[in-house]
């Protein structure tokens, strides 16, 4: 071998090494992210053209329809009404679920807490129940003749329809809160455990009560975790699907387009219109992105500027 050969080889390798290391990640990103999204974008611009009755051979062709599907989604009243319903649902879920999660995390972390391990598991356990099972379970509890809830309400003379159009949103939010509080509590609690106890000691020496420690020290230090859990919850609630879909068969109030994601399902698997479904999916993804990043932008300045 001539002495030149390894040098050029080495130079070549040095230039390529970062790319070699990047290749698996890039390949996975392209195969499982970029390509499917690109295909969905493309599908959204397609439609069918039918000659005659659409029954004979070759009478249905796939054609480009430009941005018609996207336009149709953006101008669909029912789609935006769905977002409005989800917004209301999201406000209830986010405030109640995260509020409870913070409360439970602080209580568990407080010096006076007893039976910590048991409580932690008890609060977390609903998260381990799959969404469909949880919805079915609560669905049975909401039905008048099967439910102990209604029996209790009867004692107080209340005759409530938990599937009433005005109430059903809260019935659904209840399921999400029941299932999601434990997970968020665990994230926040784990963060609390990682805070150095020196802060608390210093605070106690300064005469701070447990309550003051919680509100003045723990809460501010929790902010980054709270932001994380909020972003997760925003994404999850804007894509709410399991609860309304599972409750729909036992209630007359939940329409097939109750939430934006249900609209996608209806378009794709009821109306068998994959093209509209693709366009609607893209719009939902865009809105979710705007919501999550918008939230991050708003809170970033307040939350992280102090740290950095």
């Amino acid at each position: 071998m001539s002495p030149r050969t390894p040098r050029t080889g080495a130079r070549f390798r040095a230039g390529a090494v970062p790319y070699v290391f990047l290749t698996p990640a890039m390949a996975l990103f392209v195969a499982f992210f970029a390509v499917p999204i690109g295909y969905t974008l493309y599908l959204g611009t397609r439609g069918t053209k039918i000659s005659g009755l659409g029954l004979g051979k070759g009478s249905r062709r796939e054609v480009s329809v430009g941005f018609d599907n996207y336009k149709a989604t953006l101008t669909d009243h029912e789609f935006w009404a769905g977002w409005l319903r989800v917004l209301g649902y999201g406000v209830v879920v986010l405030t109640v679920m995260l509020g409870l999660a913070v409360l439970f995390a602080l209580l568990l972390d407080s010096a006076h807490a007893r039976l910590k391990r048991l409580s932690r598991i008890a609060i977390f356990l609903p998260y381990a129940v799959p969404g469909v099972v949880a919805s079915l379970l609560w669905g049975f509890l909401y039905l008048p003749s099967l439910s102990p809830i209604h029996t209790v309400l009867h004692w107080f003379g209340i005759q409530a329809d938990l599937f009433d159009p005005d109430v059903v949103m809260f019935s659904m939010a209840n399921i999400a809160v029941w299932g999601g509080t434990g997970f968020n509590m665990l994230v926040l609690y784990t963060h609390l455990r990682s805070i150095s106890p020196e802060y608390y000691e210093a605070a106690r020496l300064d005469g701070a009560s447990e309550f003051q420690i919680a509100t003045r020290i723990k809460l501010p230090m929790l902010v980054p975790s709270l932001i994380l859990t909020t972003v997760f919850s925003i994404i999850a609630t804007s894509q709410v699907f399991t609860e309304p879909m599972t409750l729909r068969p036992i209630s007359n109030t939940i329409s097939s387009t109750w939430s934006p994601l249900m609209t996608v399902f209806t378009q794709a698997f009821k109306n068998l219109d994959l093209y509209s479904a693709a366009a609607t999916s893209i719009v939902i993804a865009a809105i979710s992105l705007v919501l999550s990043f918008g939230f991050l932008r708003v809170v970033r300045k307040r939350a992280f500027s102090e740290e950095s």
Binding site: G54, P165, N252, S255, T266, K270
Partner: peptide, 20 residues
């Protein structure tokens, strides 16, 4: 017709509302 499912879905939604 060729879109019975769309009709049935519309039936579920519209009549669900009308019942309520």
């Amino acid at each position: 017709g060729p879109d019975v499912n769309a009709a049935y879905t519309a039936y579920e939604d519209s009549f669900g509302k009308a019942i309520q």
